[in-house]
Design a binder for these strands. Structure first.
Lengths: 346, 346
DNA sequence: TAAAGTAGGTGAACCGATTTACCTTTGAGT
DNA sequence: ACTCAAAGGTAAATCGGTTCACCTACTTTA
């Protein structure tokens, strides 16, 4: 098992030219290559354990069949351990491989985003990039756009017109949560929102406000609180909220992970979910269903998100010069999942 | 911004040959290329936004600077959401990129492991493979070994002599946990162990037994229980354990994630941790420190594991024909982290 | 029988780098 | 004046495929 065998070896063994060997191996040249020849080549290829060299192929095809996955690897995010993100990632890997594209991971170059950092993205390794949660005005998206490299943004509706994006229907999700709470009689609802950098924050807050107002429920700007991932601050925020003469009876949280922490803080203050206060999450990933009580939340369809994004990216590569086919944006449906963290207001 | 510029373009612009351009760009040919020429080439390269085409380079260098990361992507594992695994993965990505190697993700071909499935691993894209938790007798490891492709196994001490591995010191970890519990006066300890497929199970159980016996503590084979990820079965197991006339006063669990579930089951039966029973985990990842009570556990050094594995793989690629340098195996130290899930036995 | 297909196939260029083996100058040493 | 080495540089082969343009030997068709 010394050197890997090449197409030339196969051609020699089958007594044909490289051209014929190539066509036979790739199942091309219908009508040009009779069955006997094709079989002769195939046998030689098998005997020699021939495997086409993907790098050579990529060079001449000007297409590597590789999808770049751009992801924030910095220590903060690593510590934050976002299960939704993990689920999304592995779904992306799965979908890409399924379609014959190899996923290659890139670290999102943080705030220090000079041209130098971007150069590693355009060395011909990856045909297209799939970015998780890029900022809506992302310099990297622009850079890649300038070089005609397809970009699909996941969970962030980037503004660059050349980029594609796939996102959940945050509007429908928030609408459904508010409707659910309202139908249980809740009138005073507060919202722990996510980091300002995330695109969805604005949509969700705006929808939240509209959903309240359209039902005649009060919207207080100071009941829209930033969630900070710091227990003591969260505790302080809850303290302030609950010392209101008319405290909220329900809490929206940025995502399930935050809801878990908020459960803890509420429990620490002797408040029971859902008897004293209803809590809802977003995402429906672990640990939503195993919390005590199980969390009412909105499910984002991870597989559908991943599949849409991968399909969009691959189609952009494949039909690069042809007329476009797939729409450049997709909003994926979400689903309300009612569990036991919400109940009638007493 | 039409076509990407090539080395030939740069050479033409700088009025030198491709050879010279190549050397100048790569900082080679000390003494051969005078500073003026070098600068002229560099300026041309910058002006043309030249970026060497990694695929072409890989072809001629017979080295792609890519590390294959082999990971189980199947739905079961995706659902199991192992935070330790996620931490390990992102640490690997980080370390590889840090060293100029691009990580490319591969799905571990499940039980249906025919040659066909293995072929996609040897198409020249990846120079070496880093596998997470492969079985100790892994056909893929053998296959790659046969083809002289370096393999590093993470968290599993594969038996193939050509493969390298990096693993935590499970022995020290279990030893430390038992010592900790014994020093608190515990004499009756049960163990919820992990899936049989995992290499570490045997080491840990064996060490557990030795650690008990060397301290004169009783070891019961039927107190070594398989953890099943199914709440009702876990509940049944706890029921059986606790109805023993002399029930255990402490529980070792396979990992923190399992400890969380076991907390729930114990709470469901009205048992308090640590007053009624002490519980310990393994890994020290989320949610160990945020559980109530915070979990006593053993910390695996994720960064060190990842760094060792990546270094080993890269060194195997770089010094492929030279004499070996790095040792082929590494056992990484672990650390006991005492929190509040353990206390003196009453 | 000549012209025109067609089936089956090939040689050589090419993708974009790296590297080997030369080739000129120029200057120093004797 | 002649040799030799060093300095500075280049043409061409190579990596392992794909594909364009052509070529030959038959068989039809008019």
């Amino acid at each position: 098992m010394n050197r890997r065998s090449t197409l030339a070896d196969v051609a020699r063994a089958a007594q044909v030219s490289k051209t014929t060997a190539s066509m036979a191996v790739n199942g091309k040249g219908d009508g040009k290559i009779p069955l006997v020849t094709r079989q002769r080549v195939m046998e030689a290829a098998n005997a020699l354990h021939f495997r086409p060299h993907a790098v050579a192929r990529a060079l001449v095809n000007r297409c590597a069949n590789v999808l770049g996955i751009v992801w924030t690897l910095d220590p903060f995010r690593r510590a934050a351990n976002h299960p939704f993100e993990q689920a999304l990632l592995s779904a992306i890997f799965y979908e890409a491989l399924e379609r014959g594209f190899n996923p290659m991971v890139y670290a999102y170059p943080g705030s220090s985003c000079s041209e130098i950092d971007f150069m590693r993205f355009v060395d011909g390794r990856s045909d297209a990039f799939l970015m998780l949660y890029p900022p809506v005005d992302c310099p990297l998206v622009r850079y890649l756009g300038d070089r005609d490299i397809p970009v699909v943004s996941l969970c962030s509706r980037v503004r660059d017109s050349r980029a594609r994006w796939v996102d959940s229907d945050h509007q429908a999700g928030i609408e459904a949560l508010v409707e659910h709470l309202a139908s249980l009689g809740h009138r005073r609802i507060a919202y722990f929102i996510g980091p300002d950098a995330e695109d969805a924050v604005h949509t969700r807050v705006q929808t939240f406000q509209q959903a309240l107002e359209s039902r005649g429920l009060p919207f207080h700007q100071n009941w829209v609180l930033p969630y900070t991932w710091q227990t003591d601050i969260t505790d302080q925020q809850i303290e302030t909220l609950m010392s209101d003469p008319e405290p909220p009876s329900a809490l929206l949280t940025w995502y399930d992970f935050a809801a878990e922490e908020i459960y803890r803080v509420l429990r620490g203050r002797g408040l029971c979910v859902p008897e004293d206060i209803s809590v809802v999450g977003f995402d429906d990933v672990h640990p939503a269903s195993t919390l005590e009580p199980p969390l009412t939340t909105v499910r984002q369809d991870v597989s559908f998100l991943a599949q849409s994004a991968v399909e969009m990216a691959i189609s952009a590569v494949t039909n690069k010069d042809d007329g476009e086919d797939l729409p450049r944006h997709r909003i994926c449906p979400v689903e309300l999942v009612v569990r036991r963290s919400t109940q009638y207001v007493v």
